[in-house]
Design a protein around this nucleic acid. Structure first.
Lengths: 248, 248
DNA sequence: CGCGATTTTGATCAATGTCAAAGGTGGTGG
DNA sequence: CCACCACCTTTGACATTGATCAAAATCGCG
């Protein structure tokens, strides 16, 4: 399931012309410091849709900057149930946890073909020690992850299936850069299956399907094969903002 | 609702004898650097149970180290619904978000009498720029917050009311330092009302009450007036670990 | 003693899960 | 080109969880 519109950057990637410079960890670095990071990084890697960048409980010797593609971060319980914690978009910094030696607490599954830039885990602490602006940037990115997790938690804890789905889709649109008004009938590529949506929101795929049908029949949106079409953004998002007022 | 066993530290607090040194942001600092932080901090503050350290949308000129007491971090939706995002225990660093000038995204309500150590927000960035170990510590604490949020999300997204409650209580016990085996009949102070539990887990207070009754009738635990009594820790936690096997 | 907040209980209802089956879709190999 | 297969989506019937509403009981506190 590769998106036609997505063209992977040519590898290896030079930091100076990194396609996600302004979004990543490296964002605060000036020209010289960027060169240092350039020598620090191990290289780049491409993975096909459906593969795993790392799995829960892996001991991982690398850290990653997501250059291109979508990745789902998830946990699994003993019972086999799956919770998607977050969707990582280009610019995300992946694999960092407080204890860098500890096994990973979550997995990372590629939703599309993906390319990443690879850092060695070992020397990472000394790198950010030498570049305090990186450490601060890292603190900010982690704080941002916590905020996104809190959004997500609020969505799952407080809202009904219908508004959960609408809020998730809106957040993804906004994180893709569609902040400005979405025009009626606009279509946006969101490379998720209904199962992914359900796993993110604590719903079954069946119920997601039924709920999406309802939204489609009301003329609000259509979600088909990774393609989101928004018919009535005003009504849709105003209702979602006033929360819970998407009633019948 | 003040806990009898809790005695607030005498104020003002000297950093060298800080009661939560090893847990806070300041943990990596040596003697000299600690003195610098000592001069940096504005002072200490005591708040009564039920008061708000800050509220959602506040523009806040301070940052806080929680010295003593419990605080609930929460969000509210337009509809007035309340989601508790996390419970802050002594050592938590409160108020940091990526944009330090932006209005707070969540509120902080004191669950007990509380004492905090207060930092000025303005010069905070320059402080951590001068002390990279602080920046790294901050990154770690933020990563840890994200992990806790992911635990919480998984709990709410995947589990049934009964296991949600058990897992929450266990996590709180563990964060209070009761890692080691909990003995049968042991009682632990958890200063929450059933409403708080519900607000954290996306359940109504009514359903929390009914579920706790069920657990009590099964001889597993009792939760009464902020006092958790665990009768059968083995059965309780083994079942909770195998997830969902707390059936009837 | 009396008041407000919290907890308990019971009855009913709505939202969501579970199960089962059928239809779509894309990919693969003959 | 077709046949087949795996996975995803849709639909319907039914079961279950948890919400809602209401009222009584309990607790903390002045």
């Amino acid at each position: 399931m590769v998106e036609s519109s997505r063209k992977p950057p040519s590898l290896p990637v030079n930091c100076q012309e990194c396609p996600v410079r302004g979004l990543t960890l490296c964002q605060p670095l000036s020209g010289d410091a960027l060169d240092i990071v350039q020598t620090f990084k191990w290289g780049d890697r491409v993975l096909p849709a459906g593969s795993q960048l790392f799995m829960p409980a892996d001991t991982c010797s690398e850290l990653f900057n997501l250059l291109d593609g979508w990745i789902a971060l998830y946990r699994v319980l003993n019972g086999g149930q799956n919770q998607i914690l977050d969707f990582a978009l280009p610019g995300s910094f992946l694999g960092y946890q407080p204890d860098l030696q500890a096994p990973m607490l979550h997995g990372a599954e590629c939703l599309t073909d993906v390319s990443v830039c690879v850092f060695p885990r070992r020397q990472f602490i000394s790198l950010i020690q030498k570049h305090p602006s990186l450490a601060i940037r890292l603190a900010d990115m982690n704080a941002h992850r916590a905020i996104i997790a809190h959004d997500h938690l609020t969505n799952v804890g407080l809202r009904t299936a219908r508004t959960r789905i609408v809020h998730l889709l809106r957040e993804l649109c906004s994180r893709m850069g569609h902040h400005q008004k979405i025009s009626s009938g606009q279509t946006i590529e969101i490379p998720l299956s209904q199962r992914h949506i359900g796993d993110a929101l604590g719903l079954t795929n069946v119920h997601v399907s039924q709920t999406l049908s309802g939204l489609r029949e009301k003329g609000l949106l259509r979600f088909k094969k990774g393609r989101l079409e928004i018919f009535d953004p005003d009504r849709l998002f105003k209702a979602a903002d006033q929360d819970e007022l998407l009633a019948v």
